[in-house]
Write a protein that binds this DNA or RNA. Structure first.
Length: 197
DNA sequence: CTTTGGATCGTCT
DNA sequence: GACGATCCAAAGG
């Protein structure tokens, strides 16, 4: 018998992104039949964070981050991939948590079909672009409300698995500034991380 | 196993 | 016109 999935409420997301990020570890991202346990995230701290898309103010692309917490900010990266963030903090702070890697736990057939280049299970969702591709998340989902989702739309659940204590902490990946901040959080030892350690 | 370079295009300078 | 919050294939140890 498994604990029923309980949808995260608005207040969960209203805190600082650096607090929300580790709490999202081991939560379950649901999209249709596909479910995946979040094992790696990064916090972005809005206007105070030079690595954040929101650092230079609001634009058409990052508008979702400036809205209320609990929505999904999805952007197109390197002309190739989609990446998904959860908007955090009080409305207007433009802070967010990037979803970087997850362990697929349901709907595996669909995930494999969406990730034809993956060879092993641990390659399915181990990276922000891979995660979106494998779960079928793209630009159509920018602005989606995770707290009051559309039927078949993405949302986040607690299945009773607590976050790791303590979580792994490292610098964020792929950025050229603020490299000294330890704002990447991981489930230590998970084989589904985008990178070990 | 690690390293390297190409792909590809929306966004902002 | 330059540059990414990346991924992947190819080549080398």
């Amino acid at each position: 018998m498994s604990t029923p999935l309980r949808r995260l409420e608005r207040d969960f997301y209203r805190a600082d992104s650096r607090e929300v990020a580790p709490r999202l570890l081991n939560k379950v991202l649901v999209h249709g039949n596909r479910r995946a346990r979040i094992v790696e995230v990064e916090a972005y701290a809005g206007g105070e964070d030079p690595a954040s898309h929101a650092y230079r103010g609001r634009t058409a692309r990052n508008a979702t981050m400036f809205g209320p917490p609990g929505h999904l900010y999805v952007y197109f990266s390197y002309g190739v991939h989609w990446c998904a963030n959860v908007v955090c903090g009080p409305e207007g702070t433009a802070s967010a948590v990037l979803l970087r890697a997850a362990e697929p736990v349901a709907g595996l057939d669909e995930v494999w079909a969406a990730r034809p280049k993956a060879r092993r299970e641990r390659d399915l969702l181990s990276g922000p672009g891979r995660l979106c591709q494998g779960l079928g998340i793209d630009g159509r989902h920018d602005g989606a409300d995770l707290v009051d989702p559309l039927v078949g739309g993405p949302w986040v659940a607690d299945d009773g698995t607590p976050p790791p204590c303590p979580p792994g902490r490292t610098p964020r990946i792929g950025i050229s500034v603020a490299r000294d901040e330890l704002w990447r959080f991981t489930v230590p030892g998970s084989p589904h991380l985008s990178r070990p350690r």
